[in-house]
């Protein structure tokens, strides 16, 4: 199929561009490491609180670090696409006799790759810090797979922002949208220990369900009561965001 080959070419190009900017990956990994460093040991005492579900606070934090890194990945992908739009290279790609959706797929594939590489590094880091995955080796794979999927879904959101606004100012600041998604969650505390508006916001944030599912695999093992809502939310978010991105993309390139 021509579209697969074309998407692959676009993907390879995106990969080369990404590898040409190693700081992107370094800063993503460092910011994750900082979270472990700044919050892990110093705040470890919270595990003593009655009702706290984990004994190891770093294990608790791992899900949050993973989700945070793929959430911000969405903003980075948006910026990469916008850079192509502003430089005119996007139009040059559209001029080629290829299926235009191969440009979209090549970008999403790249978003998945970035998310995958980041998540694998964070999981390795967590294991090195002594975090043990209760879900076992299969759990590690499940965490990596679901975080990568979430990365692709959120890249769709970033892509829509870039295509719709074509504005570097808006796109560069799209982390303002992504930040609540990452932090209005049970990132640091389980829901039972949260109160007031924050608890309501967390309940309304779809990303929290996915984060909770990933965390369950890490700190509890195959706890399906928590994992399943997360899984459904992930599937729903991925399907709807990819649909939305495709729709906007079709309109933007018509």
């Amino acid at each position: 199929m021509a579209i697969l080959r074309e998407s692959y070419y676009i993907y390879l190009r995106n990969l080369k561009i990404w590898l040409a900017q190693p700081m992107n990956l370094v800063s993503a990994v460092l910011s994750s490491a900082f979270v472990f460093l700044f919050f892990g040991a110093p705040l470890g005492g919270v595990t003593q609180l009655p009702g706290f579900p984990a004994e190891d606070y770093q294990a608790y934090l791992t899900a949050m670090v993973i989700v945070m890194s793929v959430v911000f990945n969405g903003a980075d992908v948006a910026m990469a696409v916008l850079t192509d739009i502003l430089s005119g290279y996007f139009e040059k790609l559209l001029l080629a006799p290829i299926n235009r959706f191969s440009i979209l797929f090549g970008s999403l594939l790249m978003a998945g790759t970035r998310a995958l590489v980041q998540v694998v590094i964070i999981v390795t880091l967590a294991i090195l810090l002594g975090v043990s995955f209760k879900g076992g080796a299969l759990g590690v794979l499940a965490v990596i797979a679901s975080a990568t999927t979430l990365g692709i879904a959120l890249a769709c959101l970033g892509l829509v922002i870039a295509l719709k606004t074509k504005s570097a100012q808006v796109t560069q600041n799209s982390w303002l949208l992504f930040m609540p998604l990452a932090f209005l969650t049970t990132a640091f505390m389980p829901k039972e220990l949260l109160t007031g508006w924050f608890k309501i916001a967390v309940t309304a944030n779809p990303v929290d369900y996915i984060m909770a599912g990933i965390r369950a695999i890490i700190i509890q093992g195959w706890e399906w009561d928590v994992i399943l809502p997360g899984l459904w939310m992930l599937v729903a978010a991925t399907v709807s965001l990819i649909t939305m991105a495709t729709w906007f993309y079709r309109r933007a390139t018509a």
């Binding site: 070419y9 561009i17 900017q21 290279y89 139009e91």
Partner: peptide
């Protein structure tokens, strides 16, 4: 095009080869 649509981070070589493949 008038607005030279180039991929600044790619090498000239990679840019042309990709163009050919597409």
């Amino acid at each position: 095009m008038q607005e030279v649509g180039l991929d600044d981070l790619a090498t000239g070589w990679d840019f042309l080869v990709l163009q050919g493949l597409l």
